[in-house]
Amino acid sequence: MNARAEAEMPFYFGPERALFGLFHASATSARKAVLLCPPLGQDQIRCHRLYRQLAQALVAEGIAVLRFDYYGTGDSAGDSVDVDWDRCMADTAVAANELRTRAGVDRVFAFGARLGGSMALASAAQARFGGVMAWDPVLDGQAYVAQIDAMQSALCADGQRFMVPRKPTDGAAQWLGFAISANLRQQIADLHIQRPPAPTVLIDSLSPDAPRHLNGFEVDAAMIKSLQPLTPWDDPRRLEVAVLSHPLIQAVTHYVREAA
């Protein structure tokens, strides 16, 4: 029997057992725990392996981890079109409490990439996070919506992907492979994330040319950690290529290990 695999248990939890989670128990009694908040859409699939690697690295440090899927994403109940920002925030708080129960600790940190980082920041108070690590979080929803809309339009005309270019209507109400409701689109466009009360680290691996849309988010130099290599989040040619980063795993593991 594979002891490490055995310590990673998949299960359903939350109201009506609608949320999928995978709990990574630590071999020793955990003193800290980390909730990994997934991004939305294709970024979630691209980051799946990295999240698993990160969870295993944290467990090796004696830190318990929960990975989970929001309602309407991954293996959780609900259709992609049902994804709702407020529900995702509520799911994050439910997942944080599930992690507290399973790990037997009260102190839970949060990590998230892209919209998962935004989610960790936005739900920090509700989920009572002891610290937040956000990797290239989306802070300006309007700019993000414009970017994804442009990528979606380009996708329909992509001669590498389709034998015959598709009509824009074929890609309507979708973002890069996922049906999206008008409501979620508006919720993301309206995103305005405040700096959370908990200690926060922004991990920055965007291209130096990429505009930093802070959208009023208060930042000081001490809370930003730059990461190399840069992450090609918005490269349409890599839409179906996994995002992997050992420096990211090292940075997050180091931060949680050192956190008092």
Binding site: I45, T73, G74, G177
Partner: peptide, 8 residues
């Protein structure tokens, strides 16, 4: 791609 499949 993990078990959810491409684009779920």
């Amino acid at each position: 791609v993990h078990r959810i499949g491409p684009f779920r």
